[in-house]
Nucleic acid binder design. Structure first.
Length: 311
DNA sequence: CATCGATGTTGAG
DNA sequence: TCAACCTCGATGG
């Protein structure tokens, strides 16, 4: 259930621990057995994320495209350095995790909505957890994919086509080019900005949490047609998404509260309910003006906003 | 233990 | 517009 930041973090794990290694690929599921066979025994040569999709390249020229959708998750196990796991040393339950930085150690972790890591000590490779679509195994690391929306082997042309359908990603496109693409797409349509931010052909990687938070941070009415949003506001939205995405990749959390310091910042990192301006806060007082936050179903997704501040 | 709901997308009607 | 996909943590009895 990740938004763009999680997928970038996962791609980074593959870049660090799988790229350059020969991969044993297998699938217990009939639906992907043939796909796994195409990749099996080849060296992984690249790993990258574009928006919510991840692409893994192998030395026979084929790519694995993965989209986690709503429930997908990767389980990693084996040798990961604490440093590589990133700056989210504890999970939501406050359990101890990889805290000794620097020294390589055995880790077992799961990357989904909440990323958790616990010291292992188990045999390698471990038994897969749940129904595994594909297992990618090296000498000392393993990744299990469960529940993805998409998992398929593509040719380079097909990868290019898939990426061409996607809007700009602040971590892929140059800042200027990305911003111009985003501005052009928003300008030309009467579709509400609240829908445009969720449209992966307009901008990549934003999901329901970042959508609501970006709109509040811009004090922007979600219903405002794209072409009626002042251009400066559109540009500010792009720059803010760039900022939030980088924070998300760094911390592993969708931290959207500005200006928190010290204890409040730590609390927000640890507790989801302290982390957002409006997301999942129906009926609670707006953190700025006190007006109850409104929830509205739009295109089947829950949209949260402050009816007073967002105009 | 059963049910609900979720940070998503696709395709049928 | 809505069900289907597919998984599991949170919730309630």
């Amino acid at each position: 259930m990740p938004e763009g930041h999680s997928v970038h973090r996962i791609a980074r794990q593959f870049a660090l621990h799988f790229v350059g290694k020969r991969i044993t690929a297998s699938s217990p599921q009939v639906r992907f057995a043939a796909g796994a066979a195409e990749l099996n025994g080849h060296v992984m040569t690249d790993a990258k994320a574009v928006g919510k999709q991840m692409f893994l390249e192998f030395d026979n020229g084929l790519w694995l495209r993965v989209h986690l959708g709503m429930y997908g998750a990767w389980d990693f196990a084996g040798d990961f350095t604490a440093d590589a796991v990133g700056a989210a040393p504890t999970d939501s339950r406050g359990e101890d995790s990889i805290t000794s930085m620097g020294a390589p150690r055995v880790a077992r972790l799961r990357m989904s909505e909440q990323e958790t890591a616990a010291p292992g000590g188990d045999v390698f490779p471990p038994e897969p957890i749940g129904a595994v679509r594909v297992r990618l195994l090296t000498d000392n690391t393993v990744a299990d994919l469960r529940g993805p929306t998409a998992c398929e082997v593509l040719t380079p042309d097909q990868v290019q086509a898939a990426i061409a359908k996607l809007g700009p990603d602040p971590l892929i496109d140059s800042p200027k080019a990305g911003e111009e693409r985003f501005v052009a797409a928003v300008k030309k349509t009467s579709t509400p900005i609240g829908l445009l931010l969720m449209d992966q052909s307009v901008v990549s990687g934003i999901g329901n949490v970042y959508r609501a938070e970006l709109l509040f941070r811009a004090r922007l009415d979600p219903h405002r047609p794209g072409r009626d949003v002042p251009e400066e506001t559109v540009r500010a939205l792009w720059k803010d998404w760039t900022k939030l995405l980088k924070i998300g990749v760094q911390t592993g959390r969708m931290m959207t509260m500005d200006g928190l310091r010290g204890k409040k910042y730590e609390a927000a990192l640890a507790n989801r309910e302290d982390r957002h301006w409006v997301y999942h806060r129906t009926g609670e007082p707006c953190r700025v003006c006190g007006t109850p936050i409104v929830m509205e179903l739009v295109a089947g997704r829950k949209l949260y906003y402050c009816p007073k501040d967002q105009t």
